[in-house]
Simulated assay, not measured.
Amino acid sequence: MNMTPDLKHALVTGATGFTGGQLARTLRANGHTVRALVRRVDAPAAQALEALGISLVEGDVADAAAVDRAVAGTSHVFHIAAVYRSANHPDAYYRAVNRDSVSHIIEAARRHGVDRIVHCSTCGVHGDVAEIPATETTAFNPGDIYQRSKLEGEMIAQQAIGEGVPISIVRPTGIYGPGDTRFLKLFKTIENRTFRMFGRGDIAYHMSYVDDLVRGFILCGTHPDAVGETFLIGSDSYTTLNGLVDEIADVLDVPPVRGHIPIAPLLAAATLCEIGCKPFGIDPPLHRRRVAFFTKARAFSIEKAQRMLGYTPQVGLREGLERTAAWYRAEGYLRPAKKSLAA
């Protein structure tokens, strides 16, 4: 089997999302032939990909037949698609997307002789880490259905690695950058001074700028030493939640956040929200998985990726936050930047 394969024709799942989309566009900009598996080819995000020369296959990653159609004829598969934290999805849906799709990808790759699979897992499989910084060998400790289903999918990939399937596994840290809206609420509430720090805010938090993460994915798809390995990918340093909030406030040129509120009332409110919304199939505005933002430590070592792959993050936290804030402003999500007196 070719262990240093040319990246001739890549399939990207999750390409209409933030991370998968950035990966697909980068691969195409680098001259590669790219295909995307999308749920609807007429969706605006899918049409935007097609306009860049990315071919589309309609289907769902939970559908083995659709995955087979998408994989046929490709040399590399980047499996980025996932369902993230949303309380209105049943556990079975998480497992269909985050676990069962991995089996579909692997089976199709075997049938069609794919050179390399890059499977996107999550640093969340380690849960609330006690070891600072955590490494790829730190014990698993998933704390919710998203993390459990991602771990189950990763275990399927690990089993296939043992059977000789050329797979690399990536566990990204908190992904952000222009185009992301997951951190938008944090920026907006800091800007309008409604953000409240629940708990002490001294837990570790590790970010991953999307362009750096994409470089990590591509390295895992092309470097000979990546086969059969698992890598934590993120920035080269971590901060605390207090530090992240302070940095965002400084980037936005607003006063720093002051004061801390006990976490217990927030957790109780989240529990009541979930109980009240679940019978109606409504995604609650607050749920326990979001409370974990304030309580679970996330700090990881990327030394393995640096040593084995030559992975080197290019964008520091301050620059990444500035780029993200600039995109939010350009999209009208945040107020325009204040003009300097010199201007």
Rank of each mutant, 00 (worst) to 15 (best):
G179T: 09
A51L: 04
M207H: 13
R329M: 03
P336I: 02
S101N: 14
D250R: 08
A343V: 08
Y209T: 06
V125Y: 05
I233V: 05
L49P: 00
R148H: 13
V12H: 12
K304G: 10
A29C: 12
D60Q: 09
T19N: 13
A45V: 01
R99A: 15
S149M: 05
I156Q: 14
S121T: 07
K304M: 13
L334K: 00
E154S: 04
E107H: 15
V61C: 03
P255R: 06
V170M: 07
D63F: 03
R193D: 12
G199S: 09
R298S: 13
Y93I: 15
E58Q: 10
L266V: 03
L52Y: 09
A337Q: 11
M308D: 11
D246V: 06
A343H: 09
W327P: 01
C123A: 13
A64S: 08
D212V: 05
F231R: 01
V257Q: 00
L219N: 00
M207L: 15
A45Y: 01
A92Y: 15
K188L: 14
S149D: 04
G276C: 06
E303Y: 13
L266Y: 02
H260S: 02
R200H: 15
M1K: 15
K8W: 13
V97N: 08
N141S: 13
I117S: 06
I106N: 04
I302K: 05
L272V: 08
H223A: 09
L213E: 02
T33Q: 11
M197S: 05
R111V: 14
M197D: 01
F217H: 08
A10N: 10
L272R: 07
R25F: 12
G179I: 07
V214Q: 03
P90F: 15
H287C: 11
D283C: 06
A10Y: 09
D63C: 07
G179L: 09
I169R: 02
H112L: 14
G127F: 03
D246K: 05
V114S: 05
E331H: 07
A45C: 05
R95S: 14
G234H: 01
A109P: 10
F195E: 01
E136N: 15
A43P: 02
G216T: 06
A108K: 07
I145Q: 06
N30I: 14
I248C: 02
